[in-house]
Computed example of a mutant assay.
Amino acid sequence: MKEYEVYSTLKVPKNSKIIVRLDGRSFHNLAKDLNLVKPYDENFYRVMANVCEDLFKEFSPSLVYTFSDEISLLMDKIPFDGRIEKIDSVMASFTASSFVMHYGVDFKKPPAFDSRVIPISDDDALRYFRWRQEESWKNCIASHGISFLKSNYSNNEANDKINGLSSSEIHELLYQNGINLNDVETYKKRGIAVYRRNKKVEGFNKKENKNQVSYRSYVYVDWEVPKFNKEFFENLIG
């Protein structure tokens, strides 16, 4: 009956990098169930950062990046012999389990994530993460915009007023009402990233009888992510 397993042999192209993108399923409803603070719930973001760190330690990607309920992993070491069905199912279930574990509450409905695999080149990796970071900024503008309007109007009126406004128009509306988005925390504008950094370790080499400097890598959760650029990815990928 093995031959009835549709797509079970579909694999990532050999010697390719991939991005695995995970998205929360129906997290709009989940946000209501959890009574998340608008426009940004700090505890939710701490949980998402913890989930990203778990993914990094479990699957060894080069980078994990998150904003809102979305997570992207850049991978050059492909797990499960590149089997797409396996990558998608295991990563989605692992992410949901990690989310539940770190949130530590009784959910009305089990949270879930979907997963997709995107083969990518080094150059396109930068383009991809710039695109997602731009979406993070748009999300920041829209979230603050609707939150401001709902503090002054009914939900229906607020939705009507923001409908059709561009990001720049929402930004200007907020600025005219004393809200400067340039002053909000970096993670709200640019997301959160997890990757490896090196730290300097000084010690004494008894064998050679001299002081010695070495560097050790560690998992770094970056809440002050820079705007993604070529230099960042060259240092990341090596």
Rank of each mutant, 00 (worst) to 15 (best):
N139I: 04
R21I: 05
Y195N: 04
S217F: 00
S136A: 15
P79G: 10
D183W: 01
P13D: 06
D122Y: 11
A96Q: 06
Y65T: 02
V105L: 10
E135P: 00
K14M: 09
S72V: 03
V221D: 12
V64Q: 03
P111N: 10
F67A: 11
S60F: 13
A49R: 01
D122V: 11
K2V: 13
Y128A: 06
N43W: 10
M91Q: 08
I84P: 03
Q176N: 15
I19R: 02
P13W: 07
H171A: 14
V184S: 05
D183C: 07
L74H: 04
E185D: 15
Y103I: 08
N209R: 13
C140F: 09
H28K: 13
A193G: 11
V117K: 02
A142G: 07
S115Y: 03
V117H: 01
N163D: 12
V105D: 05
K32R: 14
F99R: 01
D123S: 11
E42L: 09
A31R: 01
G203I: 00
K57Q: 13
N209T: 01
I192Y: 01
S26I: 00
N180R: 09
P110Y: 05
E224A: 07
D81H: 09
N211W: 15
E3R: 13
H171K: 15
K17T: 02
S89T: 14
R83E: 14
S217K: 13
K17Y: 12
D81T: 03
F44W: 09
M48S: 08
P79V: 12
K138W: 00
F27C: 02
E234I: 11
D88H: 01
A49C: 04
V20Q: 01
L73Y: 07
W137I: 05
F233R: 11
F148G: 04
C140P: 03
E85H: 11
E234V: 11
Y40T: 03
F148T: 02
V117I: 11
G82H: 08
D114R: 06
A158T: 08
N159S: 11
K210A: 12
A125M: 04
D88F: 00
I179R: 03
Q133K: 05
M1W: 10
L181P: 05
P226C: 05
F107G: 05
F94M: 08
F129A: 06
W131M: 08
P39S: 05
N35A: 10
V221N: 09
A125I: 03
E231P: 01
V105G: 04
R216D: 09
N15K: 13
T95F: 08
L74K: 02
N235M: 12
Y65L: 06
D33I: 00
M91N: 07
S147C: 14
T9R: 15
A92G: 12
N29D: 08
I78T: 04
Y220V: 06
V221C: 12
K109R: 15
M75F: 06
G24D: 10
S26F: 10
T186K: 11
L181Q: 04
N229W: 07
F94I: 08
K210M: 14
P13C: 05
R116E: 06
E202D: 12
K227S: 14
V47T: 09
A92Y: 09
R132N: 03
P226H: 02
Y103C: 09
V51G: 05
F67C: 07
E134V: 08
P13N: 03
E85A: 14
I237Y: 01
I19Y: 02
F233K: 10
W223V: 08
K2T: 13
T95I: 09
V117G: 01
K2C: 07
E169V: 06
